[in-house]
Simulated scan of single mutants.
Amino acid sequence: MRVGLVAQRDNDRALALANTLTRRLDAVGASVVVDPTTGEAATDGGDWDGAVPSSVDVDEMAACDLVVSVGGDGTFLYAARGAGSTPIMGVNLGEVGFLNSLAPEEAVETVVAEAEHIQKTGSARTRAMPRLRAGGDGWALPPALNEVVVQGDHRGSGGGGHFRVSVDGATYSEGHADGVLVATPTGSTAYNLSEGGPLVHPDVAGLVVTGMADDDGMPPLVVDADSDVVVELTDAEAGVAVSDGRVREERATPLRVTLSRAGEPVRLAGPPLDFFTALDKLA
């Protein structure tokens, strides 16, 4: 039984909780590995109680039986990219935490109980969270849990470009915009919301298409989860596709990006998120 721990960078509270989790997991016979940033903080901080676990790159945590993220949604997204199909649990130290369902005070007992369940049964109790794939001619982005943005080389005055958005082969919108954002229901509460897109309950099967500062006022659109969305960009010096705000692919124009639901979802372990309680924190 192997557990990967990823603690939020420069967060003493996250590091202390990772330390407690390591001790408790070790006591039930589970080995722990941490990402290099957590390992370096544990080694240099001086407050780590016991031996510091081995460090592995986050991409290697797909070989673990369980991955635990301690921090905010950004930390969860980082850990989820490496976890692949491995079950992941999120401990919420942030203000909103739509991806992290565990409160700090219940995290240790819940994580340990799930580790013991995996040891006993060979599998975790999980629910699927869809991801979004995006790519073009000869390239592809890592699957996104929240959103993929397609935009010109910069936003604002003199930026953007001419965008054409098609859904399953039919044109939905065409005109000048800063960019186009395609989100999962999970990601509807993130960048999508700040761009005027709709909130979508995580149990709804769909994709959200939202224009970014588009001149013609394209209404946000929710399409079937199995739809293929194509975003074409012209009249710009270059185009950029960004997965979950972290991984960027810069391309010459004309740029054509195809977006659809990824075949491999995130497998989220732990108690279900109270979506409407989390919404209260947006106010």
Rank of each mutant, 00 (worst) to 15 (best):
A41K: 02
T110K: 11
D235T: 01
S69R: 13
P198Q: 09
P202L: 01
T37I: 09
A241I: 06
L221P: 13
L255N: 03
H162C: 13
R251D: 00
D178G: 00
D59I: 12
G29C: 03
R24D: 14
S55P: 07
T277N: 06
R248W: 01
G50S: 13
D214H: 14
T20F: 08
T121A: 01
D59M: 14
G245I: 02
T171L: 11
D168E: 05
T121L: 02
T186I: 00
T86Q: 08
S227I: 00
G138D: 14
E95N: 10
R131W: 03
L15H: 11
A62S: 15
S173N: 03
A236Y: 02
Q8K: 15
P272D: 02
A18M: 09
F98N: 02
D214N: 13
H176R: 12
T210Y: 12
D178E: 02
T171Y: 02
N92S: 04
T126D: 01
A177D: 11
D26Q: 09
L102S: 05
D178Y: 03
P265D: 01
A63P: 07
V149I: 14
V112N: 02
V208C: 10
A16V: 10
A51E: 14
R155E: 15
F76A: 12
V58L: 11
K120S: 13
L77Y: 05
